[in-house]
Each structure stands twice: as structure tokens, then as C-alpha cells.
Amino acid sequence: MESRYYPAKNVFIDSIEIDDYIALESSVISYKQLQHSIEKPLKMILVFGRPGTGKSILLNYLYENLKYQKDIHYFATPTTNEKEFFHKIFKVITKKDLPSNTRVNFSTLVDYCRELQGKREIIVLLDEAQMYSGEMMERIRLLSDSRAIKFVIALHQTDKEEDVIAKEHFQSRIWEVVELKNGTIEDIQNYVHKKLLKKNLFEIANSIKSYHIGLIYKFTKGNYRETNKLLFTIFEIYEYYELNDKKKIDISKFSKKIIEMSAIKLGFINV
């Protein structure tokens, strides 16, 4: 027998699938800003924000929306191997695969891109760009200088020193920055409710009141990934009780106790 909380739990699996994209007020603004930047004759655009603020899903959403309209390509997984990365770029530009034992001549590639200037406008979305080495980033910049390829780079905002270096590296070259932030308490409320309602889980959505959201927000600080993790754990505990000890839960009421238990589990509360 499947628990009623099973689909609710799955709603909050962390993914960047387009179906999971929730159009919140703040994310719509970021999306429009990014879309507008792409239209501009910019070489590089930086999407900047802490992990879990929705950078990946924003890039994916942009890609899915524009893939039939523009020459747009999404590199979800960073390629740390330079040879592999330029094989991918080569394929984007020429739409042809290179034999695996062949190496791309970078200067030839740049020259080829220069020839494409004005003829094609290729957009490459690079997620997790903090994984690329400084040398590779320099080559990416040289490619973007050809004006044939426009790079949208998603970069994690952390407190680490390399993050500052990376930011400085891009500052002189990037013309536009789209910064994503953690959601407000209203954003989190909309996010949770919209996610549940999207899967027609009305009863559960209605049982989550604003003070429950307040508690969730207190633990996750409005971070969407942390919110997903917390709600996933909450519904997993609910699922356990429903299958093993049903009298401990009230299906009409959302439990503060279970929120706190999940927070303990995820380390938001230190006992």
C-alpha cells in the first residue's frame, strides 16, 4: 500500500527539471533579467548566487524555453577535462563530432568563430562554472571575444577565497550580472504551496499554515534546496508513521513536531 505522503515527498526531490520550476515573483524577475541580457550584444553574462538559490533550474528553464528559437546549448555538468570541453564546443559550433583521439586546435577554433561573427549567434549556458580552471576560463573568454559565442556562466557564491578570485576574474570581462538570492518567507510559502498544488496535493497544501512555513523558513533561511530537503524529510517521516504508527499523526494537521524532527535529522537543530 502506498502512503498518501509518498507523492508529497517526491514533489520535493531536488531536481532541475523544467516541470519542477516554480514561477515565483523573484524568479520571474531573474528570468526576465537574464532573457533581456541575452538579447543584448554582450559577450559574457554571470548568473551568481549561493548554492540552492535556483541558478541551475533558471538556466535549464531558459534553455528549454529558447532551444527552438535560438542557437542555445546547455552544459549542465562541468567538464574539467580541457580536451573534452573543446570537443563539446566544436560540436556546438560545427554540429559535428570529432574523433576521440583528435585534439582541437584552439587558435583555429577562435579564427573559425571570428568568421561566424554576424552570421550566427551561439549561446552557451555553463552551469557550475566554479569547477573550470582559470586557464579554461581564459580560453572561454577568448572564444567569447570572437562575438560569435555568448557565454552565460552560473557561478556559486561562497565565502571561500577562490570564489572572490573567480568573481574578480569575471568582473573585468562580464558585462552583466544576474544575482539570485534566497527566497523571502512569502516566496517559500508560495514555493511549497505551488509545488504541492502542481501535483494536486490540495489537502496537504492546505494543512501547511503560515506558522509552519515560518518554522521551515527559520531553519532553511529561504534557501530552496534546503527547503526541498527539509520537506522531503518531513514527508518521509510522515510516510513512516502512516505505515507503522498511524495514531501518532493527524492527517488534517501539519505537525510542528515532525518539522522539528526533520530539522534535527538534517542538522538544523543541534540537540
Binding site: I237, N244, I264, V271
Partner: peptide, 13 residues
């Protein structure tokens, strides 16, 4: 998870 252990920790909290 070990929900019973979680419950005990929650009571302590």
C-alpha cells in the same frame, strides 16, 4: 531513518 531515535532526540530538544 530511525524515527524512534529521532523522537527521543526531539523530546530532549
Amino acid at each position: 531513518y530511525d524515527v524512534e531515535l529521532l523522537e527521543r532526540e526531539w523530546r530532549r530538544y
